[in-house]
Design a protein around this nucleic acid. Structure first.
Length: 265
DNA sequence: TTACCCTCTCATGATCGGGC
DNA sequence: GCCCGATCATGAGAGGGTAA
């Protein structure tokens, strides 16, 4: 078999993955910023549960990130959990903010991300004072409110808007963003496991609210519950008919939403 | 089209245990 | 001690979602 030959002739060496570092953060600090925050989102593509945003604040005195810190997608659940105690001592402050499925339906996913981001930033800045620059993953600034935005009539703690620095793949190159992604991922996964106890048929303890085959099958059979993002095409088909309107579930909406803690540090 | 989120599947390398 | 197969962990890519 050729595969055997391949194994003997090609010593497959994985390219060393350059880990995240503080170069960008230190460049921004040298440019006059006193505090820099790395921010990352998780749960955007989920069908149920909140969208969550993690933030980690660093300054010129912050040492390199704990060994093993990387984009949360590149770490196993066990590796992410193992990092938490060290991340809890790294940086000046850290927090995770959430926006509920009901808020995603009401505001849209980008505004909900903004809400969660400002909740996280508000919690972190309660310790450090206002940050000067936020490093965001990607090429789209979802944190800065639109000019006419009225979003913050909601309960997000409003701060002086920090300058936003965009960086594609920041969660793989910037230590503060990578750390924020790990914190947010762990926090949201833990939250979904707790919520799975209330709605066990959707198996959120395993799929975390994402479109796994089990989750989709339960959705088709039972319809969405109050923690699903009802404004989305939850079954993947075009038919809204696939989603029965459940008056009983709607009546539970307020209770469930009220039961949520939307911010943690 | 491109950016992000994720799960799932597949290919590959590392490790472990049984048989010789 | 060596070989081989089974199992596990990991990374890449495909494909589901939304927004600009």
């Amino acid at each position: 078999m050729t595969a055997l030959d391949d194994r003997s002739t090609t010593t497959r060496v994985r390219a060393p993955r350059p880990g995240p570092h503080l170069r960008l953060e230190r460049t921004l600090l040298r440019g006059g910023a006193r505090l820099v925050a790395g921010m990352d989102e998780v749960g955007r593509g989920s069908l149920a549960g909140p969208v969550s945003v993690g933030v980690v604040v660093v300054d010129a005195g912050t040492r390199s990130a704990p060994q093993g810190v990387a984009d949360s997608k590149l770490l196993s659940p066990a590796a992410r959990t193992a990092l938490l105690p060290r991340l809890a001592r790294w940086g000046l402050a850290r927090a995770v903010g959430h926006a509920s499925a009901a808020e995603i339906d009401e505001l849209g996913i980008i505004a909900a991300l903004r809400l969660a981001g400002h909740r996280a930033l508000g919690a972190a800045c309660a310790t450090t004072g206002p940050v000067d620059v936020v490093v965001l993953d990607g090429s789209h600034d979802w944190l800065t409110p639109p000019a006419q935005g009225d979003l913050f009539a909601l309960d997000a703690p409003v701060l002086t808007a920090p300058r936003v620095h965009l960086r594609v793949k920041a969660d793989r190159t910037c230590a503060s963003v990578a750390a924020a992604s790990v914190l947010a991922k762990c926090e949201r996964d833990s939250l979904m496991v707790e919520l799975a106890a209330q709605h066990p048929h959707f198996r959120w303890d395993e799929n975390k609210g994402y479109a796994s085959p089990d989750h989709l099958a339960a959705l088709r059979e039972l319809g969405p519950c109050v923690l699903h993002r009802r404004s989305w095409r939850l079954t993947g088909s075009s038919g809204e008919a696939a989603l029965p309107t459940d008056a009983t579930a709607a009546a539970r909406l307020d209770d469930d939403a009220a039961a949520w803690g939307m911010m943690s540090t």
